[in-house]
Computed example of a mutant assay.
Amino acid sequence: MLTVPNNARPALLATLLLLGTSVAAPASPIITVSWRDKPPYHYLENGMPLGFLLERTQAIFAAAGIATRLAPEPQKRIWANFSHGATNYCSFSWYRLPEREAVSQYTLPISIDPPHSVLVSAAALDRVKSHSTLATLLADQQLTLGVVDGVSYGPELDAMIAHSANQIMRRTVDTTSMMRMLSVGRASFMLVDREDWEYVHRREPILRSTTRLDFPDMPPGLKRYIVCSRDISPQVMEKINQAITATGGAVRSSHGAEDERKGHQHP
């Protein structure tokens, strides 16, 4: 092997450039893309990552030409990573909230949710159905609202929950576990994502005792985004945004499209 003295290397590099020989640039770092368990958006099944928003996000990064490594993590850990200055780090399927914008940067939206629904226990169904609006439902002191701790239902619903007159049962569990608690009467009702409900209801017979209701004053569904750590360059963020646009922009879920065609009805 030919050894080139250090003092001769600049001249050799200049000669290579003059001859048109390319010198390889350092490879771009692999970006870690974290995600929480939220079927059917993104979840593990038999160790395999699945879900329509996970697939969409993978397609976006592929279209942008960015190498990624998937890392399923709990929600609180994901946001702790952003708060503690994680590098080469992104996550996806998040609502836009001021406290999150303070520790991360947002892409263009990748999807739009349908409005939330209200999931009701069998024991509370008659009382919940006596309310024609979400506002009066949240003012009923006799009902218990189940809330998944550590998640956001969107800025408007978060504020409504904070000022609710209901008794609040707040638990650090996933949404499916909260649905199970509701089915055995631990709470009167909860707010539920329609995609979550459709997925879980088909797979858990115990939830057939619950009823999903829609209210006319439910806030509209929110947009979901990819979020990235502050060290990701503007050039890389622009590549991701261009890929989002090229792959369809903020797509609507199938249930959201169906709701728009039929209109929202309270039974």
Rank of each mutant, 00 (worst) to 15 (best):
R77D: 13
D113Q: 04
F92E: 00
S117Q: 08
N81H: 02
H163I: 07
S132L: 15
A59V: 09
N166L: 02
A86F: 06
G150V: 07
H84L: 14
H116V: 10
G150I: 05
S117A: 15
P115D: 14
T176K: 08
C90N: 02
V128W: 01
K76L: 05
H84R: 15
T136W: 10
K76F: 10
G65P: 05
L125K: 12
I78E: 04
T133N: 14
E99R: 08
A159Q: 13
L138T: 15
Q58E: 13
L119W: 01
R100G: 00
A64I: 03
C90T: 01
D126T: 13
L134R: 09
M160F: 12
A135K: 14
E99N: 09
P98L: 04
P115H: 11
D140L: 07
A135N: 14
A67C: 05
P98Q: 01
I78Y: 02
A139H: 10
E156I: 11
S104E: 00
I78H: 04
L70I: 11
Q167F: 09
V118M: 00
P98F: 02
T172S: 11
K129L: 15
Y89C: 05
R56I: 15
L137M: 14
G154L: 04
Q75K: 09
V147P: 00
S121T: 06
T175W: 04
V147R: 00
Q75P: 06
A80H: 14
A67T: 08
Y89E: 03
R96C: 02
S117R: 08
R171F: 08
A159N: 13
F92N: 00
A62R: 13
D113S: 12
V147T: 03
S117F: 06
R69T: 04
H116P: 10
N166Q: 07
T87K: 10
D140Y: 05
S177D: 10
N81A: 05
S152M: 03
E99G: 04
T133F: 13
T172Y: 13
V147C: 04
A159H: 11
A80L: 15
P72Q: 06
K129S: 14
R69A: 07
L70Y: 13
V147L: 09
L134H: 11
F61A: 09
L137E: 00
A86K: 05
L119N: 03
I66P: 01
H163F: 07
S132M: 14
R96A: 06
A102V: 03
I60H: 07
A122G: 12
A135T: 15
L70S: 14
S132F: 15
P115F: 09
L97P: 01
Q167D: 13
P109G: 06
P109L: 06
L145A: 06
L108P: 01
G65V: 02
I66K: 04
M178A: 11
V118E: 02
V151E: 13
R77P: 05
T57P: 05
A139W: 10
Q141A: 15
E101R: 02
A139S: 14
V120I: 07
T176N: 05
V147G: 01
L157N: 10
G150K: 11
R69C: 07
S164A: 15
I78R: 01
L145K: 05
P109N: 08
F61V: 06
S152P: 03
W94M: 00
T144P: 08
H116G: 09
L134T: 13
S117G: 15
L143K: 07
Q141K: 13
P115G: 10
L143V: 11
T175P: 00
V148I: 04
Y106N: 02
A123V: 12
I161H: 03
